[in-house]
């Protein structure tokens, strides 16, 4: 008896290619005019056409958070988001976090020892940034919930929590002193 393993052409392989659209994506304040297939996911366009490879792909399936970016400040798994839907919205990637100096989250995650291989780090930072925007002084529980979509295999997470906590306190201090002034 013989049986064929599953290598036959599946029907969707014969489906017509997705149509190509002209879209303009705004990434970290810079606009990119692009011709994109409507089926392209945002992470592949950021990493490909836009040329910003800080956004990582760990699963392509909404499971690991390595591809997290901000869309108008909201955290989104860019692997599972269509690029054309991001047109007209402000896309922020990890490359957009630092100004002349490192963002406090970047500085603190290094100081706390929350970076090992660094592959989860960009996504982790974007989730943390979104969390601190929504909840400037999160409890440990809120930090855990806010970052629970981001897998890290290296650190055991403790130092990442430490870094987010330190940043929230630091930024709160800055806010307070600017109010006092």
């Amino acid at each position: 008896m013989t049986s064929s393993s599953e290598h036959a052409t599946s029907p969707e392989k014969n489906a017509p290619a997705a149509s190509v659209n002209h879209v303009e994506l705004t990434v970290n304040g810079v606009s990119y005019p692009l011709h994109l297939g409507t089926d392209r996911n945002l992470s592949s366009v950021l990493r490909g056409e836009v040329g910003l490879t800080g956004t990582k792909e760990g699963c392509d399936d909404c499971e690991c958070g390595a591809c997290m970016v901000l869309l108008d400040g909201q955290p989104v798994n860019s692997c599972s988001y269509l690029a054309v839907q991001a047109a007209g919205r402000a896309i922020t990637t990890v490359e957009g976090l630092a100004g002349d100096d490192l963002h406090p989250l970047q500085r603190n995650i290094l100081a706390a020892g929350g970076v090992q291989c660094g592959f989860c780090t960009p996504g982790m930072l974007m989730s943390a940034e979104a969390l601190l925007e929504r909840t400037p002084l999160p409890s440990d529980e809120e930090i855990r919930i806010g970052l629970s979509g981001n897998l890290c295999r290296c650190t055991g997470y403790a130092r990442i929590i430490e870094a987010v906590r330190a940043t929230s306190v630091e930024l709160d201090g800055v806010r307070r002193s600017s109010v006092t002034e």
Partner: peptide, 22 residues
């Protein structure tokens, strides 16, 4: 959570800036 003891020296990761900036 883990308490980071205060007498630890600052962690020097030469590859740190690469990794946090993308």
């Amino acid at each position: 959570m883990t308490v980071l003891s205060s007498d630890l020296p600052p962690f020097r990761r030469a590859d740190g800036p690469d990794k946090v900036t993308g």
